[in-house]
């Protein structure tokens, strides 16, 4: 058993192509990658929203102090 089908290098390299594990699962891996990517945007936007909501609670004096800090 081997995750890429090869158990030894007793081969002629001109006859060898892809050597990554789980060949045949490329579409599944791409789907998982897309879910990961879109999930990241969802989580990031949610966190950013919470951060902005928190910053909106600052009073005007704190806002002026922040401006003075440049």
């Amino acid at each position: 058993m081997s995750t890429n089908g090869m158990t030894s290098w007793a081969v002629d390299l001109k006859d060898v192509g892809a050597i990554y594990p789980f060949q045949g699962s490329e579409v599944l891996m791409v789907i998982l990658a897309v879910v990961f990517w879109l999930g990241w945007h969802y989580l990031q936007l949610r966190e950013e929203g919470a951060e902005i909501a928190s910053e909106m609670k600052g009073n005007p004096e704190e806002t002026k102090e922040a401006i003075d800090r440049y």
């Binding site: 058993m1 081997s2 995750t3 090869m6 158990t7 030894s8 290098w9 007793a10």
Partner: peptide
């Protein structure tokens, strides 16, 4: 886990 069973070496007699 991901590389389970693949050759660790191009030489004979090595564990996979």
């Amino acid at each position: 886990f991901l590389l389970w069973g693949q050759p660790s070496s191009p030489y004979e007699g090595y564990a996979t």
